[in-house]
C-alpha cells in the first residue's frame, strides 16, 4: 500500500519536473535539441516507472516504533541547525555539540559523549587546518584562527 502512495508521489514529481522543463525560455543561440527534450525524456520514463510501481507494489516496509520519532526529528533538526551555525560558532563548538547529541542517542553517558566529541572535534580540526591545510570555520566565539 505504501508503495502505491509513493508511486503517486513519484508520478507527481515526474509531472512537475516535466512541467518545469516546459516553462524554460530558450534563446536563439542554442543547439537544435535545446535544453528541454532530455528532461522530457526523463519525465516520460519516470511516469512509466511510477505507473509500474503502482501496478505492482512491494509489501509495506518495517517502520521503527513511534517512540523513535522525536529522536529522529531531533537529529534531522540538529543537522539543519549545524549547517546554519557552523560558520558563526565555528567547527569545534558545533561539531562537539552535534557529536555529543548523537553519542547520547547511541547510548553513551553524557561525560563519555562530551569527552569523546570534544577530543575528536579538536583533533580533526587541528589535523585538517594545520596538517592538511583544509580551512574549516574557526568561528567568532572561539577565535582560534
Amino acid at each position: 500500500m505504501s508503495d502505491r502512495v509513493l508511486g503517486i508521489l513519484v508520478l507527481l514529481l515526474a509531472l512537475g519536473y516535466g512541467w518545469l522543463a516546459n516553462r524554460l525560455e530558450v534563446g536563439f543561440f542554442s543547439d537544435p535539441v535545446g535544453p528541454k527534450p532530455f528532461p522530457y525524456l526523463i519525465a516520460a520514463c519516470t511516469v512509466l516507472a511510477a505507473l509500474w510501481l503502482i501496478a505492482r507494489p512491494d509489501p509495506n516496509p518495517q517502520w521503527p516504533p513511534r517512540a523513535f520519532g522525536p529522536a529522529f526529528a531531533l537529529v534531522l533538526g540538529s543537522l539543519v541547525a549545524y549547517a546554519y551555525l557552523v560558520v558563526p560558532l565555528g567547527f569545534i563548538l558545533t561539531t562537539t555539540l552535534e557529536m555529543t547529541l548523537l553519542s547520547l542517542l547511541f547510548g553513551a553517558r553524557w561525560w563519555q559523549g562530551l569527552g569523546g566529541a570534544l577530543a575528536f572535534s579538536l583533533g580533526v580540526y587541528l589535523l585538517f587546518t594545520y596538517g592538511l591545510s583544509v580551512p574549516l570555520p574557526a568561528g567568532k566565539l572561539l577565535g582560534l584562527a
Binding site: 552535534e98 557529536m99 548523537l102 553519542s103 547511541f106 569523546g116 575528536f120 572535534s121 580533526v124
Partner: peptide, 10 residues
C-alpha cells in the same frame, strides 16, 4: 558505536 558513528558524521 556511540563514538564511531558520530565520528563518521563529523
Amino acid at each position: 558505536r556511540w563514538f564511531l558513528l558520530p565520528s563518521v558524521l563529523a
